[in-house]
Design a protein around this nucleic acid. Structure first.
Lengths: 213, 213
DNA sequence: GTCTATAATTGGATAGAC
DNA sequence: GTCTATCCAATTATAGAC
């Protein structure tokens, strides 16, 4: 087994010809999460059975319980991966040097690019929140709220610096995030994601945040 | 039974002190749909049992089948009520006299007001699409697409008239609709809906549609 | 870590009396 | 139209061998 691969040797080919183990490098667990996310996105959390998920990764239903203690734990892993990944990768962009406008532009671009890269997981973690236990939901919600607060703060900083006209940073942050997250519902393969990111950056920075409301 | 009421006499009090039968005036069926929508919004379609819905309207689970042939038919009624209502009530606003900008402003306001009035149904019909049969989903999707096309067309008309700067009416329509529909997820009682409609109208007309992308 | 077999429960839907 | 009683299928999760 020469190129580094998943536990069963499954690999995913990248655009430059190299390969990486399927499932985000977490081995079998990552494989399961990715397969489950695809099914959940297509058919919804509750219509998908453990047997289907298992079959997709080449094992039997019962064997899933060697990796996750319940179906909900798989869903939780999806939601956590998405929210944490967005937070860990994007918050540094808001902490970096630059004007508020520049920092927000970087975040919007990064947000849309990761959303496009993990579209199914993102859609599932937005749509299937009711599948989470109250404790897990609370944890996910906290992370989301923190992310939203940070966006609000950089908008407020931009308003203070005279770069934006919006008078209500909280409401503007919600509107911009809802507009971006909506992309998860309709983005299809073959779309020019870079152009999409440019367009939405303009919608936000030269649009919503200049509307003077 | 003096004021007009539901089959069981249940009434809803309006802001001016008058009452109307609960459930949108469709009698028992409307009552069931409203109760189901509340539960679906709170806990998700699949976590809610027929027995719970029945109990909420004061009957037994089996009796629901005198009004709906299946649980999915209840969900379908929710989705159809929301999509058709938006279409029937709002398309005339786009057909009326006035500039594209004025007509779109009227639609945005009406969209947000009905969304606030029927928030739970709206959230459910957006989020629980995977609960619908393929046939019903296709029907709902067609109505949604038509609505979106009409918004795109009025944007295109506004661009042609020099009222808007957006170069891609389709993408701008999607962004504006996603931004508005996002409201369903977080709107809470006591919010000033009129002010919200004003703000979002500005986000769209003076924001996204002036961003020049 | 995966398997077969099965437990345990849930939940949508039906039958037939009233 | 509503009830009680029940069926039946599906599905999460466990037990214990390999």
């Amino acid at each position: 087994m020469s190129p580094k691969s998943g536990d069963d040797g499954t690999v995913v080919s990248l655009s430059d010809g190299r390969t990486r183990p399927r499932g985000g490098g977490e081995g079998r667990r990552g494989e399961i999460v990715s397969a489950a996310a695809d099914f959940f996105a297509e058919h919804g959390y509750h219509t998908v059975g453990m047997r289907e998920i298992a079959e997709a990764v080449g094992i039997r239903g019962a064997s899933l319980y060697n990796h996750f203690s319940s179906k909900e734990e798989i869903m939780y892993a999806i939601a956590l991966r998405m929210t944490r990944e967005l937070q860990d990768q994007h918050m540094p962009l808001l902490d970096a040097a630059g004007t508020p406008r520049e920092r927000l532009a970087n975040l919007i671009r990064a947000h849309i690019l990761s959303l496009a890269e993990h579209q199914t997981e993102h859609l599932v973690s937005l749509r299937e929140q009711t599948a989470l236990t109250p404790e897990h939901l609370a944890e996910i919600t906290d992370i989301r709220k923190y992310y939203q607060r940070r966006v609000r703060d950089v908008i407020a900083a931009g308003v203070a610096a005279g770069e934006f006209h919006a008078v209500n940073p909280h409401q503007a942050a919600v509107a911009v995030l809802d507009m971006m997250n909506g992309i998860s519902w309709w983005l299809h393969d073959g779309e020019d994601v870079e152009a999409l990111a440019d367009t939405y950056t303009a919608y936000a920075l030269d649009g919503v945040l200049q509307s003077g409301s």
